Simulated assay, not measured.
Amino acid sequence: MAEPMVTFRVPPVALFPLPAALAVAGLGLLGLAAEHHSAPVGSAGFYLVFLSVAILALTFLLRVQLSPAGVRIRAMGRNRLIGWPEVRAITAERQRRGGRQVTLWTASGPVRLPLPLGRGTWTEAAFVSGYHQIGQYWLAHRAPDQQLPAG
């Protein structure tokens, strides 16, 4: 039986607040521009509506998938696969802007995963669960001759 693929996505509750606020502001500016015949205000409103749709689309498409082949990162139209044999260690690193982020340490340098999220929209328990899930997947699929780091 094939091992199931694990997919991390942005939680639905995190998808909507910022784009919704931008869309409401943009629509408000469009309404104001229509009342006062103001092209600059209308342009700003259109820009905010467009920006909200773009943020929603990019966030909706963001994924980190675990499979026996490795970790696939899908973000902003890019698709990157990091094979399990390339991974030397997995850590949870603090970010400068708060929260934590899972980092894969490879021979070519660190790879920071955009998900699971370690702040705001996810609870600490959900982050820790995702972090451990990634670690367990790595332990099960790393190269047979690969040793765990000392320490």
Rank of each mutant, 00 (worst) to 15 (best):
F8H: 09
P12Q: 11
A14H: 02
A14P: 08
L15A: 06
P17T: 04
L18S: 08
A21D: 02
A21N: 01
L22Q: 11
V24A: 15
A25R: 02
A25D: 02
L30I: 13
L32T: 05
L32K: 06
A33E: 08
A33Y: 00
A34Q: 14
A34C: 02
A34S: 15
H37T: 04
H37L: 07
P40Y: 09
P40M: 14
P40A: 12
V41E: 09
G45P: 03
V49Q: 03
V49R: 04
F50E: 02
F50R: 02
L51C: 14
S52C: 05
S52H: 05
V53K: 05
A54H: 02
A54N: 00
I55R: 06
L56H: 11
A57V: 15
A57M: 13
L58Y: 07
F60H: 11
L62N: 10
R63E: 14
V64C: 05
L66I: 12
L66W: 07
S67D: 13
P68W: 05
A69M: 10
G70I: 04
V71P: 03
I73D: 02
I73G: 06
I73A: 05
A75T: 09
M76E: 05
G77P: 11
G77R: 10
R78N: 13
N79D: 15
I82C: 05
G83P: 03
P85R: 07
V87P: 05
V87M: 10
A89F: 04
I90Y: 00
T91Y: 03
E93I: 01
R94S: 15
R94I: 01
R96G: 14
G98V: 07
G98Q: 10
G98E: 14
G98R: 08
R100N: 08
V102Q: 07
T103R: 13
L104H: 05
T106L: 10
A107Q: 06
G109R: 02
P110F: 01
V111W: 00
V111F: 03
V111S: 07
R112C: 09
L115P: 03
L115M: 06
P116Y: 11
G118D: 03
R119I: 01
R119Q: 11
R119H: 12
G120I: 04
T121W: 11
T123D: 07
E124Y: 01
E124M: 06
A125P: 06
V128I: 11
Q133R: 15
Q136P: 00
Y137M: 06
W138R: 04
L139P: 00
L139W: 02
A140H: 09
H141G: 03
H141N: 15
A143D: 14
D145P: 01
Q147A: 15
Q147I: 10
Q147F: 01
A150F: 05
G151K: 04
